[in-house]
């Protein structure tokens, strides 16, 4: 997902007998759906895992602006340009809500950004794929934000109060993202043969990267048990992926496009669509930094940070000077 393969900091789920009184009290709150708030006691591993997960989620929102930003100046109409700008601006806001949530755990935003820029934290694999034609922008809003919504709706119930509230706020804004995307790709799919071809190409290229967003299969998601017990994670990767596939296949069919995977088939017995696994070696390779755009994405983020330094410093120096003058005048 926007947070994939978060290593849960934990030596394994403890039984109630193994827990200290404090840990038991903490687990009881979680089991009773009482939110954990910033100044409440929490196990160090809970805090560490949350910082990793929320931090990675925040980085994904911010880096996720790049593939779409790529098309702002080339949107086909002024209206589409305004919509895309608004959408990308929302993503900046999502990054901010999430960095704020991480900050309540005692990790500063600048520190998280530094870890990202040093390659010590990650963002979602999906943003390492390029947006090659205008239909890709539709497909990103519809499929990528659509996948993110499936995950984020579940995370509204996460145990950490500030994270849960950030998710609720984000979900309110996300359905605009998915709908504007589907609306854009509808125009393409129902357009000229060349436009239809581009829409098909977008779906074919982005389908597997989109379903990879949910992370490895449950069998390969070692140590997610603790995250589930802590309700940092609410549903398993495979559960979420299935939910996404089930809701998306009919939407592809409505567009009149070919399904991007010949094995997609309704399974009457399971009550779900069957589908092929993505190429997991590709996924792990992208995570490692070898996707088509990893290098560019990091280069752009670091440049944006470095190029903005004089503005950050200048505004702060100005504020400090004004504050000092005010004190002197009093």
């Amino acid at each position: 997902m926007y947070a994939q393969m978060i290593k849960t900091a934990s030596a394994g789920v403890k039984s109630r007998e193994e827990m200290t009184d404090q840990e038991r009290e903490f687990q009881d709150k979680i089991d009773n759906d009482i939110k954990i708030e910033p100044r409440d006691w929490m196990p160090d591993d809970y805090r560490r895992t949350l910082i990793r997960q929320i931090g990675q989620h925040a980085h994904s929102e911010v880096v996720g602006q790049l593939p779409e930003g790529n098309w702002i100046t080339r949107a086909p109409t002024l209206e589409r340009k305004a919509i895309l700008l608004a959408k990308v601006q929302d993503e900046a806001g999502h990054g901010l809500y999430l960095y704020s949530a991480a900050e309540t755990l005692g990790e500063s935003r600048d520190e998280l950004v530094r870890l990202l820029h040093e390659g010590r934290m990650k963002y979602s694999s999906i943003f390492n794929y390029p947006t090659l034609n205008w239909a890709d922008i539709g497909a990103v809003g519809w499929l990528v934000d659509g996948a993110a919504i499936v995950n984020q709706v579940a995370l509204q119930r996460t145990s950490y109060g500030p994270y849960s509230r950030a998710m609720i706020r984000i979900c309110k804004e996300e359905s605009f993202h998915a709908r504007q995307g589907y609306h854009a790709i509808m125009k393409m799919a129902f357009g000229t043969p060349e436009q239809t071809r581009q829409a098909q190409s977008a779906v074919d290229r982005l389908w597997f990267p989109a379903i990879m967003m949910f992370g490895p299969t449950d069998a390969d998601s070692t140590n997610s048990d603790q995250s589930m017990a802590w309700k940092i994670k609410v549903k398993s990767n495979d559960e979420l992926r299935q939910q996404f596939v089930d809701q998306t296949v009919p939407q592809i069919e409505y567009l009149g496009l070919d399904l991007p995977d010949p094995n997609i088939k309704w399974n009457e017995e399971r009550g779900h669509y069957d589908f092929s696994d993505p190429d997991w070696s590709e996924f792990f390779n992208v995570i490692k930094g070898n996707g088509p755009c990893n290098v560019d994405r990091m280069k752009d983020r670091v440049a944006a940070w470095d190029d903005g330094e004089w503005v950050r410093d200048g505004l702060l120096a100005h504020a400090q000077k004004k504050a000092a003058a005010k004190v002197a005048a009093e």
Binding site: S100, A166, H318, A319, A323
Partner: peptide, 11 residues
């Protein structure tokens, strides 16, 4: 509603 970073109140 949330928090944010800024150099001063105006910003």
């Amino acid at each position: 509603v949330g928090s944010l970073h800024a150099p001063d109140a105006e910003m």
